[in-house]
Amino acid sequence: MSMLKIEGVHTFYGNIEALRGIDMEVNEGEIVTLIGANGAGKTTLLMTCCGAPQASKGRILFEGQDISRMPTHEICHLGIQQSPEGRRIFPRMSVYENLQMGASTQDPKYFDQDLEMVFDLFPRLKERITQRAGTMSGGEQQMLAIGRALMGRPRLLLLDEPSLGIAPLVVKQIFETIKQINREKKVTVFLVEQNAFHALKLAHRGYVMVNGNITLSGTGAELLANPEVRAAYLEGGH
């Protein structure tokens, strides 16, 4: 069944219409990616799912429940967690404290078990446990952001450009881990990316966004082979 269903969503920033009627869905157990150029509205769509900003038209259903009018912090309690654009970790708090913050919606009894799970996925974080998060490298910060989201025991994980400003080798590693999270931890992933090649290779299905509209959709392999996608997002790159 579809876990997240977006129906005709319009979102405005003041007078600017950033999303012009989006329809898409994420099924349980999938990795779905959304690719597009700068300013296409990818992040806006992801944030609209979290209720900041709220959609002015249309509905967003999470497991059948309409969440488009709920405040952000309540949406998180339903089992949606995100690693926001630019990571937004708490720079002056330690890695451990950041992970504690991630678990704030959860019963403390799961904490130790979840912490171990995150450290299994990202052994680097365990080494840095008492370090100030802001002093870590970009890749480590991204790992922390994903780990922090996982501490909230999500069923749906929203990832906004996890490859942003990170060394290619580390990007590969992070994408591997995302795959592992999806397969082993049974977490559904909705991934917003500019790095179309990596994202489409990883994803089960993908959507392409241009100027606030979804223009193409299909499986990851289909989109990778699509000449339009190749011309717009892949050529000249990898």
């Binding site: 900041a52 952000t72 912090h73 998180c76 002056r92 708090m93 504690q100 913050m101 909230g152």
Partner: peptide, 24 residues
């Protein structure tokens, strides 16, 4: 306690706090 850590997290980044389920 969680409330104190939430204060500090709120000082660091309000948006991140919200998206982690803290009621600002």
């Amino acid at each position: 306690l969680p409330i104190g850590r939430a204060w500090e997290a709120l000082r660091e980044d309000e948006i991140a706090c919200r998206s982690l389920g803290i009621n600002p």
